[in-house]
Design a protein around this nucleic acid. Sequence first.
DNA 1: CATTTTTGTCCGATATACTAGACAGCGCGT
DNA 2: ACGCGCTGTCTAGTATATCGGACAAAAATG
Lengths: 266, 266
Amino acid sequence: MTETETLDRNRPETATATGGERKRGIDRVIILLEALLRQRAPMRVGDIARRIGAPRSTTYEIVNRLLEADMLETVGTDGHVYFGRAMHLFGWAYSHHNAHYPRIIETLDRLAAETGETVQLCSLRGNKYVVLDCRDSAGPFRISSQVGVEVPIPWTASGRLLLSHMDEDAVRAFIPPEDYRLPDGRWLPQEEFLAAIALARQQGYSESAALADRFTWCLAAPILDGRGAMTLTLCFVLPIDTPEARRIELLALLRERAASLGLVGE
Amino acid sequence: MTETETLDRNRPETATATGGERKRGIDRVIILLEALLRQRAPMRVGDIARRIGAPRSTTYEIVNRLLEADMLETVGTDGHVYFGRAMHLFGWAYSHHNAHYPRIIETLDRLAAETGETVQLCSLRGNKYVVLDCRDSAGPFRISSQVGVEVPIPWTASGRLLLSHMDEDAVRAFIPPEDYRLPDGRWLPQEEFLAAIALARQQGYSESAALADRFTWCLAAPILDGRGAMTLTLCFVLPIDTPEARRIELLALLRERAASLGLVGE
DNA sequence: CATTTTTGTCCGATATACTAGACAGCGCGT
DNA sequence: ACGCGCTGTCTAGTATATCGGACAAAAATG
C-alpha cells in the first residue's frame, strides 16, 4: 500500500481522517491546498486541521510557513486563511506560459460580450473535468459556473471532445465507474458515452442537452494546440429553452472562434 | 549576488546555500516555486537542484510529488517542468475571492481597449512591488511589463501610493536601503521619496517620469477596498514623450475608473 | 459568574524524511 | 571507440520534522 494515495481525486473527502499516521510536510501542504480549493472560502486553522486529518500543532506549523511565503494569507480578524498572492503569481505564470493564452482569454471575453451568454474555457485535470476560466452571462437567470471544481467527465459536453483522442478501451479504463452516474441519479450507459465521444470526434464539436442539469444546453468546440492535441475547449452554457436557430448560430460562432485559436501554434 | 539566495525577505542567513544544510521539504517546495517564478520558464530538474541549492535526489523527490499533485507539470519531451494546472486554480481562487475582482479586470480591459496604452494592476508583496495583471499596449513600441516580478518600491509611482498609509518612520523601517538605488545607478534620496509619498497621499494619485527607466512615464491611481485601505493601484505606463494634454486626459480617466472601483465594498 | 470549547504556542521523544553517494543508461563531442 | 556529463532511480543512515500532549488565554456557552 502506497502512502501516495493521499490526494487522489476520488477520495470521498469525508473519511480518510484516520489519525495516527505520520505524514510529510509536503503531503500535508498539498492536501491542505486542495481542501481549501474545495471549500472555496477562507477557513480557520482548527477547521483545516480537522478537515485534512492533521494534528493541530502540525497544521499551525505548516499554515504559518505558508503564510510567510505568501502562499496563504489571513482573511479578516478571526484567524481565517485563504490562498495568498504568491498563488496568483504562480497561476498567472502557468496560464501565460502558453504564449497565446492571452488570445484565448480575449476570445472568451469577446464571445461573452457579443452574445451575452455564459462561456467557459474547459480542460481536464486527471480524470476529471474542470473549468479553467469563465464569463458568466449577465441576465437575470444567470447560469454561473465554478472555476476549479472537478466534475465527472461524462457529465459534460466538453468531456466528449477532450477524450476524443482516446480509443474505447482507454476511455473505459480512464473513467471511474461511478462517474457515469449523473447528478439526477440516472446512469449514463457506457456505450452511449463512447458513441457520443465518437460522434464528437467526427463532428469536431459536441452538444449536450440536460446532461449535468435539467436547465442547460451545452455547446463545446475544441482548441487545438501547436501539436494538434486537443487539451482545451470553449463552451457555451445556454438555457435549455434557447431557440434552435440561436443555438445553431452560436455553435457556428463558437466553432469559428475556437478554430481560429488553434493552428497558430509554435 | 549568487542566484541561490532566491528571494527570501525574512531570513537574513542562508548565504552559502552550497553548504550541507538539511532543510524541510516544505521549505524546499517554497524555494523551488519561487525560483521557477523568477525564471519564468520551464526548467530541468538538474538545473532546479543547482539553482535552489538542494541535493539532486531531494529535488527529484519533491518535483515528482508536485507533478503528482498537478502543481507542476512537464513541458516538452526533455524533462522540463513548470507550474501546473493546480496553480492556476489556486491563483484563480485567490483572485476571485475578492468579490469585485472581475470588475477590476473588466476595468483593466476597458482602459486598455479604449486608450491603447499599457495598463497595470499593481500591489505589494512583502516589501516589494509587483504587477498582478496587465494589458500591454499593442503599438509597435510596446512597453510590456512582467507580472509577478518583484521590483523595489521606490522605483514605482504606484509604490508611493501604496505606502501612503504609513508614517515616515514606518516607511524608513520598511524599505531596504539598497532599494533606493535606481536601475540606472542613481540613488534616490530618502527624503525625496518620503516627500513623494506625502504628495501622493495628498493628491490621491502619483506620477513619475523616467524613474524605473528612461523611457516611461507612469500614472497611478488607488483602488480603495471595502475598508478604505489602499492595497491596489491601477497604473498607466506611457512612453515618456506622451504629450502633456494626453497625459492629463489619461490621468483623469484613470482616477475616475479607479475611484469607481472602490467604496462598493463588502 | 462558572463551565466548556477553542485558540495559539511550546516541548520532548522518536519515526522518518532528507541527504550523500552509488549506479546504469543515454547523448554528445572528439 | 572512448570519455565526459547528465539523467533518473535506489539505498542506508542519521539529523530532525512531525506528533501528542500540555498549557494559558480567549471565546463561547449556560
